[in-house]
């Protein structure tokens, strides 16, 4: 009787404390609130500036345009939280679009081709993870190397030029839609929800935060640091592979030059979304907003007929702004 009373009172203590913590959480997430406001302000301004902006078709296009980079950015958020970085993602996109194309053209069925593509993606992830985690080499250096290495292999496999392929199902994934919404957007949202759930509610997700926070404490607390970090790079590889399949599905081709610079676009979105470069901190919701803001800025400029060169300048400005804000927040 006594002990159960105690348990109940403890439970109540836990409940009331979780209310307090929710309030604290709301205040500390003010950066997310600010991002949301920025996003809405941007939409408002652009709606006034261009009559073509505030339309269903345009929003669909914006989201469709963010599907590939969004998936990569979500993965990159996890990598950054683990106090790592993966610069090879753009090359993995190209690599996987090439594997898919070549294996389909070689007469493998779609399931086999997809399997080969994911094997390719996870191999790169294992490669990165092995060097970073087992040999403990700086992830920036390793993935800078694999970025070039994987890109080179993609060119070697396909022989320099993009090659077309055909598959009805892949074609549907790339350009079909369900309830008026393009399939890639669903894919992106599924990845977002799945990854958010994993990071927030599983042991693995918490271990990733813990390792990013303090790797030495993580090791002394019995976390399998090596295994966890390898998994982080493998999941990143898989997501980049998925992004590659989506890109191939949208272009009906294996393109060895695809995904060039995606690593930097993803980093921009992640850092703008409030994830710390020092590891241990970050949220996928922030990354979603970061991705959207970048897409809105670029789309708005297109609408307004701003030349591409000026768009490059504004993208650079966003990166610098995001980094400055990130550093000041720390």
């Amino acid at each position: 009787m006594n002990t159960s009373d105690k348990a109940i009172s403890l439970k109540q203590a836990g409940a009331s404390s979780s209310l307090v913590s929710k309030l604290i959480g709301l205040v500390s997430s003010s950066y997310l609130v600010k991002l949301t406001i920025a996003c809405m302000a941007l939409i408002a301004v652009l709606s006034f500036a261009s009559p073509y902006f505030f339309t269903f078709t345009n929003f669909k296009d914006i989201l469709l345009g963010t599907a590939v980079i969004g998936i990569i950015s979500f993965g990159m958020t996890m990598v950054l939280i683990s106090d790592g970085i993966d610069l090879s993602v753009g090359s993995v996109v190209a690599f996987c679009s090439v594997i898919l194309c070549v294996s389909l053209n070689a007469g493998f069925g779609l399931p086999m081709a997809l399997a080969l593509t994911f094997v390719g993606a996870i191999t790169v992830g294992l490669f990165n993870g092995f060097f970073v985690s087992v040999l403990n080499i700086n992830p920036f250096i390793i993935t800078l190397g694999s970025m070039s290495l994987v890109r080179g292999i993609a060119y070697i496999i396909i022989g320099g030029q993009p090659k077309p392929f055909d598959s009805d199902i892949i074609r549907f994934v790339g350009s079909g839609s369900f309830l008026g919404v393009p399939i890639p957007i669903y894919v992106m949202l599924i990845v977002l929800v799945g990854l958010s759930f994993m990071m927030k509610y599983t042991q693995f997700g918490r271990n990733v935060y813990a390792i990013g926070n303090n790797q030495e404490t993580a090791r002394l607390s019995g976390i399998n640091v090596i295994k966890t970090r390898i998994l982080v790079y493998c999941i990143m590889g898989l997501l980049a592979g998925l992004a590659g399949i989506l890109l191939a599905a949208q272009t009906y081709a294996g393109i060895p030059a695809a995904g060039n610079g995606y690593e930097l676009d993803a980093l921009t979105a992640v850092i703008l979304g409030g994830t710390s470069l020092k590891g241990g901190e970050g949220r996928l919701a922030g990354t979603l907003l970061g991705t959207l803001i970048v897409a809105l800025v670029l789309n708005g400029q297109n609408m307004l007929g701003v030349p591409y060169f000026y768009q490059l300048v504004s993208k650079g400005a966003i990166i610098i702004f995001a980094m400055t804000v990130a550093m000041k927040r720390n």
Partner: peptide, 24 residues
């Protein structure tokens, strides 16, 4: 090497025992 400064008291207390469970 003793604590995760940016994590909650609860997580700091429960992370080691959590490692007994399956990773996912």
């Amino acid at each position: 090497n003793g604590e995760f400064l940016e994590l909650s008291v609860k997580d700091n207390i429960c992370i080691p025992s959590g490692q007994k469970k399956r990773l996912f």
